[in-house]
Design a binder for these strands. Structure first.
Lengths: 234, 234
DNA sequence: TTCATCCTGTTACAATTCGTAAGATTTGCG
DNA sequence: CGCAAATCTTACGAATTGTAACAGGATGAA
């Protein structure tokens, strides 16, 4: 999967195929659509999809047996999309090897989210992006290392990384202390405020902030913090 | 996971906990139930659940931030069970790291089926090969030999191999001490912690890690370890 | 058997992390 | 300018982790 992940769509309704293809391509996936199981199976000989969306009610084949084969032989990630809403349908679909079961009518954005959730597991490495660049710095969240523009390395601890990640995920926006406390797992302890201060102080030191004039982590008195810096994840 | 998979249930309604526990235990899982996030987090220090069921509306904590931390830091399989049925809720839940999102009211048998679908994926991660290459090293698990890029050989023991294999099977993911202890057959002895430390220390020496700045085996204080390195099995 | 060697857990102590306490400093507002 | 609240910094200590040294046990050769 060096390029964008490939998602195949097998559904006999053209409207659904286009709806899914549009949403998926906007989300950065490649797509291939099929109306019949036979066409789909033919394509499988040359293409290797990362995810297969399969409608159960196909004109030329029982969808369930296809799912079974796909999951069993290809080891592919299979998501059933079906109008059959009974619990029993879902259970048997999942037991036959499907990874997920989405009921019609569905929202395309949920389909995208569920596909992403599967691929995240598939590629444990860095699907979501574990490296962020900002203002000459590079933060490697998988190796817990902060790199200078000169290449000099500074390790950062887990607690510091939590704070840094929070900032880098919400740059140039105010982050209230309440949100911070929640994200950092502070168990409603009043004195956790001080712990947060200390974390930020230590992070500032590693980022070589001038205490008199912090350029990256600004304090908003009475409100929270704001991280200035042009962040790009990869 | 030598024994039955462990599923944790975090929900403040006792009726739901029992319903799920009954269905799951009948299906052959071990279960642990919690009403509060704090109790659950405390249990995480000693137990290593294979799947975590989390209700979003918790009395003592916002469930979403908990899900985020679980998925991000523990690398755990997380399934949200929630009454919030809006598409947007589901999408954000999945994007924050949840593997699945089940809406109340639900049927226990579907929960079981969805959990099985997740675990089916987990298992095959165990590669069949017994030789792994990573960052210039080659580990031969059948001959208990570690080979350098220059071809120099270093033997490793059985205990060291267990740790190394655990790392190589889950690269770039956090491995909690609880999981390690379970995998390495540690009999819950408190002092087994030290034994694990020693195993890792010896492994680090053989991998010629710089004690001050380990590249491959990183320690996450209070959480566990993470193995960096691009692994390919054969 | 006897001895040497290796493996591995245990112990003891050093090093690191991180929250807490306490005092210093800054900010907002009269 | 003065005061109170908020925030920063430093120091300390509890908890966690690293590692050297030791000891018991297994293995295998003489």
């Amino acid at each position: 999967m060096t390029q964008a992940p490939l998602v195949t769509i097998l559904d006999d309704e053209p409207a659904i195929r286009t709806m899914l293809a549009d949403a998926l391509e906007e989300a950065g996936f490649r797509t291939m659509g099929f109306a019949r199981a036979t066409e789909f199976e033919a394509a499988l000989k040359t293409a290797a999809p990362d995810v297969c969306l399969v409608d159960l009610s196909l004109p030329d084949r029982d969808g369930l047996s296809l799912v079974h084969r796909l999951a069993l032989e290809q080891g592919a990630t299979v998501i059933i999309i079906s109008g059959r809403a009974q619990v029993q349908d879902r259970v048997t679909g999942l037991e036959l090897g499907a990874d997920d079961y989405i009921i019609k009518p569905f929202d395309p954005s949920e389909v995208v989210a569920r596909i992403r959730a599967r691929l995240r597991r598939e590629k444990p490495a860095t699907q979501t992006g574990n490296t962020a660049r900002f203002n000459g710095w590079t933060a490697h969240f998988d190796s817990y290392i902060l790199t200078d523009e000169t290449g000099a390395e500074t390790p950062f601890s887990h607690a510091e990384g939590e704070v840094l990640r929070l900032f880098l995920e919400r740059p140039k926006r105010l982050i209230s202390r309440a949100i911070m406390q929640e994200t950092l797992g502070g168990a409603a302890g009043e004195s956790f405020d001080r712990a947060m201060d200390v974390r930020i102080s230590r992070l500032r030191t590693k980022l070589r902030e001038d205490p008199k004039n912090p350029r990256l982590i600004k304090t908003i008195y009475g409100a929270g913090y704001i991280f200035l810096g042009d962040v790009s994840w990869s």
